[in-house]
Amino acid sequence: MRKYLSITPLIIFFCVVVVFFYFLIIKRDPSYLPSVLINQKAPLFETTSLFNNEPFIYEEEFGNETVIVNFFATWCVPCRMEHPFINQLSKEKGIKVIGINYKDDPKKAIEWLKKLGNPYSKVAVDKNGNIGVNWGVYGMPETFIVNKNNIVLYRQAGPITKDTYDNFYQQIKEGNK
């Protein structure tokens, strides 16, 4: 038993090193994120709404027009950077944005939206991150474009910024065609 115990650190170390080598050798762009949801039906969910605690019913919100689904949290610094762009999409371009408040304190979230402006037509609460799991969310923030047939057209992992805003808006316009 002792013999195996003393060799364990070596084995673990080599496994870790092999993984690191693999990543150095393959060429990869650390900011690219694929999604299996593209061109699939958006995953259904039932939860409560942030502001009034009433049930958030999926069918009422989706299926009539192109909708943007934005996962956000108050603990996430990039979300704050992204927020003006979500505001812009909702208030200037008139696009329907549904917010999903991910693993967050509802009180803080309400406060946050009051201060920074609320671009969302409805905010669904994802207290335990279950909706995030179904949508394959990896980190905060993430934003999806869902068309009127409930098909996911595009996924933006990470914040919408000055650089990615135009491309994102273009994707929405294409989804409307």
Binding site: V19, F23, Y32, P34, W75, K103, G139
Partner: peptide, 20 residues
Amino acid sequence: TTYPLFVEIFSNNRISIGEP
């Protein structure tokens, strides 16, 4: 810290985990 790398090997997915 390294979990995102390991997940990427097995599922080809990118993830990031933070404060929670």
